[in-house]
Design a protein around this nucleic acid. Structure first.
Lengths: 216, 216
DNA sequence: AGATGTGAATACGTTCACAGCC
DNA sequence: GGCTGTGAACGTATTCACATCT
């Protein structure tokens, strides 16, 4: 049996994966632990230890083979298949998510888009035709969707989440700022840009204050 | 001098802050460490230790006063002021970000929106009129903006980042999936929905495989 | 009852220093 | 020279168990 990896480790592996994929797009062939550390905010020593932990070796003086690294991490994390996603909300945000290349590039296909506004039904966003939310359950079953994205106004988020759960969705990506109440076993993730801002601003103002007191 | 808090601690404090703010909106008065733990994914014992570390006490049998908690954390993190942000990209994504109440609610004001498409200049997104990107430098200086959001197509992101840095922006929120190359001292953050998906899916498939081998 | 608060043990992450390889 | 690989020491986080308060 394959051992289950530590949460911290898998979390960091996804960061190396995404960073390395981007560096490959820039034409890079090898990446160093120092670089991965800079882009991910993780200590280079930790990067080397992590890659070691999954039995992936680099070459000294050069770094890690970017392509092999991506393959190794994808294998370890079991990210070889693609996933169909259900997106609810065909407004500006939903349209932006559906048209972006980011998700498909990583194996996540926006397979269905739903809304409750009759004016939006039948329109095309990205490559898919917007359906009425009442068809959610049927589509989820047909396309074997376990991941749902909520890109509705905040006021609709909880209700949409409940319909998703009822339809069989297991993982919900929530672009609104409401706290979703879901049954155990359902994973929710909020996309919250302020999280990183608040954290960064704290250190930014700390540095400013230190500089101020040094001048005194 | 006020001591600088550990990165891990400040990171967790922002999570307590955001969840507690949302619970207040739901009409809640007190919150328990158990609840905060459930919504943030942090162990309840850790929650109590953290609140203890910033000298914030709850009442046994009840929990923590939600409103006081928000105030205490905001004070500790220095999040009492509001920040003006510059948003570049007035497409679907930019419009969605500018119209959302999420940022203003947390003290982040979308003060200026820029684009390079003449058709979009002069339009209103959210509450602000779209300006040409050439005015970035002037606006950043006038409104004292240190935070910028990139909501352009991926192909424009690096160039926009460079213009932001030149204009004096210190923190960049990047909604594209390109790796931004910026000078030291500039903080960048990618909004990457796949990060959390990949991590979650790993554990989801692990659980499935465990169940499978139990049946064997 | 139902929470907070805290000691103690353990696991995990971070950092330094340096050996080893290309 | 530049980067990987790793031992050792340290600091931080996690968890258990239980005393304590309302």
């Amino acid at each position: 049996m394959k051992a289950t990896l530590q949460p911290g480790l898998t979390n960091r592996l996804t960061k190396y994966l995404r960073t390395t994929q981007q560096l490959i797009e820039e034409g890079r062939d090898a990446v160093s632990s120092k670089e991965l550390g800079e882009y991910t905010g993780i200590n280079p020593v930790q990067v080397r230890r992590d890659l070691n932990a999954i039995d992936f070796s680099g070459t000294r003086g050069v770094g890690y083979q970017a392509h092999d690294l991506v393959e190794a991490v994808r294998n370890i994390l079991g990210l070889r298949q693609t996933y169909n996603l259900a997106l609810v909300g065909a407004g500006n945000l939903g349209a932006a998510i559906a048209s972006s290349a980011m998700l498909p590039k990583r194996g996540f296909i926006i397979h269905d888009v739903f809304d409750n506004d009759p004016k939006k039904i039948g329109r095309t966003v990205g490559n898919v035709v917007v359906k009425h939310i009442d068809e959610l359950e049927k589509s989820v079953a047909e396309a074997d969707e376990i991941i749902g994205i909520i890109a509705t106004p905040a006021s609709a988020a909880q209700e949409v989440a409940e319909r998703m759960v009822k339809a069989g969705i297991k993982v919900i990506l929530n672009y609104t700022d409401v706290l979703l109440h879901v049954p155990p076993g359902i994973e929710t993730h909020r996309i919250d840009p302020t999280a990183q801002l608040m954290h960064t601003l704290y250190y930014l103002t700390q540095v400013e204050e230190e500089e101020k007191s040094e001048r005194e």
